[in-house]
Simulated assay, not measured.
Amino acid sequence: MRASSVLALLGAACIFSSSAFAEEYKEMRPYFTESLTYTFGDSERNADDAWGGYIGLGAALTEYWGLEAGLFYQAFPMGGNSDPNRWEEWGVEANALYFYSRKPSFSPYFKFGLGTAWTDLETPAGDADTRQPFYQAGLGFMSAFKYFTLRGDVAYRYTDAKFSGLDDFQEPQLRLGIAIPIGKAEVAEADDKMTAPVTDSDGDGVLDDRDQCPGTPRGVRVDAKGCPIDTDGDGVPDYLDKCPASPAGTPVDSSGCPLATKVDRKFEDVNFGFDRFDLTDYARVTLDKTAGEINAMVQKNPGVRIEVEGHTDSIGTNEYNQALGVRRATAVKDYLIRKGVSGDVITTRSYGETKPIATNDTAKGRLLNRRTEIRATSE
């Protein structure tokens, strides 16, 4: 068969197959394939062109790349000059396929690969058995019909055939055959989509087949899934949320507003030196932590109130210690305000020496009594 005739047959198959199917889904199933092969023999073979066959398995690796491996056989009949040769070849090959498109109607691809051929050579001078590696590159197509896929490709094959004084073989090769996909196709689903137009029942801009929240009221802003936007993530969509900036993780009511929870929390005491109301370094570290916790509590529950109580030991008069307790409570309040706590939620009170928590008969006990207590409460 002349090369121009085979090329014309392959071209006609490509043109005919482009209108075989109208589906737009991507064909990604593994497949079994078998093809008729025609190889234009290199003149170094001193033989006629070869007919043969190929069987293989293929699979998609990604949307664009595929891998195929198979077995082949071909025979070059005696021909050429007065001392013709006869070749029989069988072997294995593996090819990488790069698909321009995965549409079943027409999937063009490039291929490149390698393999090994075992050869039985008959010559007038005697016979020889050899093995040669080869490399190939080409292009082809696949086109799906109802029960099978038509495929064809043309490749240029380079064979390392340096034996018995021969040079390398450089041979064009044509294949035309079928592929049988393995697994269930998506045709039924595609047909349903074509015969049943998809609508947008609630008019939110997301079609019903992708809308996870059908029935959204008109005019409500939605996300890509068709569900109402919930900016603060509290489970209440913005169009119903009366408190749209609730802190993350805050329990809310049906209106999206934080639930009022009762608070009764006592923080670490702040201790002072004898007859002093200035803050020590340790006291500042303690109040930094306390201020952060208070700010978080107030943000979640605006009803939280902070009470700061000043206390003293028993040394000195009652009147002096009452005033000293006021100064200590005020010092703590001023520091908390500097750390971001609103002064509107803080109240101060002095108990002087009236509420000791330890004995005033020892230095350690008096140190524990020289303190400021901080408590958070809410209704």
Rank of each mutant, 00 (worst) to 15 (best):
M1T: 15
S4N: 13
S4Y: 09
L10M: 15
A20H: 04
Y25N: 09
Y25F: 11
Y25Q: 13
E27N: 14
M28Y: 09
R29G: 11
P30N: 12
P30V: 15
T39M: 10
F40S: 10
F40P: 05
D49C: 14
A50K: 14
G56F: 06
L57A: 11
E68H: 05
P77L: 12
G80Y: 04
D83G: 09
N85C: 15
W87V: 13
G91T: 15
L97Q: 07
Y98Q: 03
Y100Q: 13
R102A: 01
F106M: 02
G115M: 02
W118V: 15
D120S: 09
T123C: 09
D127T: 07
R131L: 11
P133N: 12
F134M: 04
A137E: 07
G138E: 11
A161N: 14
K162G: 15
D167H: 11
V187G: 06
A188T: 02
S201E: 05
Q212T: 08
C213F: 04
P214D: 10
T216Y: 11
G219M: 10
V220Q: 05
P228N: 06
T231D: 03
D234S: 04
G235C: 00
P244G: 01
P244Y: 02
P251W: 03
R276A: 10
F277E: 08
L279G: 11
L287N: 12
A291W: 09
Q299I: 00
P302I: 03
E307W: 04
T312V: 08
G316C: 11
Q322R: 03
A323K: 07
A323N: 07
A323R: 06
T330A: 10
K333Y: 02
Y335Q: 00
S342M: 00
D344T: 10
T347K: 15
I357Q: 13
T362Y: 02
K364R: 12
G365R: 03
G365E: 00
I374E: 04
I374F: 01
T377A: 09
E379W: 00
